[in-house]
């Protein structure tokens, strides 16, 4: 019978990514609820020295897959190696992060294993020994509570920034083992030929702790510098509404909403955003929402924890000055 919780670690350039700690923390909680072991699978090249960190976050066992062909990530290579290990190890639960890589990998892996998968979940729980997951659908206009019917492993991905991190415990260590796997060159049909770093150096919106976002009320692309100034100061990334993106003011990658990114920062500051339903859908899991808008009837105020009725061109620069007191 399927036993244990497995999570797939995500690393980039040899560094473990934060989403990995989030799912390892969550995996630990689920393993404890089941009274079973937590195994983390770590794939990459020359990666074994990173396995110890995963033990500190709660892994009982780390399975290391070390191969030059596993760096950088490709769907072919990862899905092939992991599906082999999962079939062999027969875990009850398999968790990944809902990062871009995790979304890409989880779909292929679910299909290879022929199991159901719950994408981008915000809550996992064990009920009667089974995994129950809650996931926003329609970009958060509704939530679905789902479970798995004769489908093992029970597979889910966790939305970045949602699962709480356990405090790493330096006295904890995991049993680290080299995984037994083979990778057939002939099966690898894709190859990463170049990696272009983002020049802004900003944290992606899906992973940002704080976001300052601007909409139609920004009046033009030239005015986003006032948001950039505030964002730089408080360590936020800058987002935009669909109307700002469709007007060509900001790149597509900045769009928050149902046809853009779904974000869950600790702080979301909406400036000159009225709050169309498709925008609200994309940011309603933010922990604290601030709205700055001159229209006091704007729907965004219904969702905001703190609303400022006023002209953003006055309020935002003043706020940039005021926050300096608290940094």
């Amino acid at each position: 019978m399927a036993q244990g919780v497995w999570t797939i670690a995500e690393q980039r350039d040899g560094a473990i990514r934060k989403i990995t700690y989030e799912i390892v923390s969550e995996g630990r909680r689920l393993a404890d609820a089941l009274g079973q072991e937590l195994t983390v699978v770590l794939l990459g090249s020359n990666i074994k020295d990173k396995a110890g960190e995963l033990g500190q976050y709660g892994a009982d066992k780390v399975l290391v897959c070390d191969d030059p062909k596993l760096d950088p990530y490709t769907t072919d290579a990862y899905a092939s190696v992991i599906s082999g290990l999962v079939k062999e190890g027969d875990p009850a639960i398999l968790l990944l992060g809902a990062s871009v890589e995790g979304k890409d990998l989880s779909g292929r892996l679910a299909a290879k294993l022929d199991v159901a998968m719950a994408q981008d979940c915000t809550v996992f729980a064990i009920e009667d020994g089974n995994l129950v997951a809650t996931r926003p659908i329609y970009a958060g206009k509704a939530y679905a509570k789902v479970t798995f019917e004769n489908s093992f492993p029970q597979m889910g991905t966790a939305r970045p920034n949602v699962m709480s991190l356990v405090e790493p415990d330096a006295s904890r260590s995991a049993d680290i083992a080299d995984a037994d796997f083979s990778l057939d060159d002939g099966a690898l049909k894709t190859k990463v030929v170049d990696v272009v770093k983002d020049e802004s150096g900003k944290i992606d919106l899906t992973e940002a702790d704080k976001i300052v976002s601007g909409g139609r009320g920004m009046k033009g692309p030239e005015n986003y510098n006032i948001l950039e100034e505030l964002a730089d100061l408080i360590g936020a990334s800058v987002g935009a509404s669909r109307s700002a993106v469709d007007a060509g003011w900001r790149p597509h990658s900045d769009q928050v909403g149902q046809t853009g990114k779904v974000v869950s920062p600790n702080l979301y500051v909406a400036c000159g955003i009225s709050g169309a339903i498709q925008h609200l859908a994309g940011m309603s899991t933010s922990k604290v929402i601030v709205a700055i808008n001159k229209d006091e009837d704007a729907p965004i105020f219904q969702k905001a924890d703190y609303g400022v009725v006023g002209d953003l061109f006055d309020v935002v620069p003043a706020l940039t000055e005021e926050v300096k007191k608290y940094l």
Binding site: A118, Y143, K303, G307
Partner: peptide
């Protein structure tokens, strides 16, 4: 294989201050 137990509206967000 992915069974829906229930759908709920999003957690209510009260308008703040």
């Amino acid at each position: 294989k992915l069974k829906i137990l229930e759908l709920t509206p999003p957690p209510a967000r009260e308008a703040g201050k």
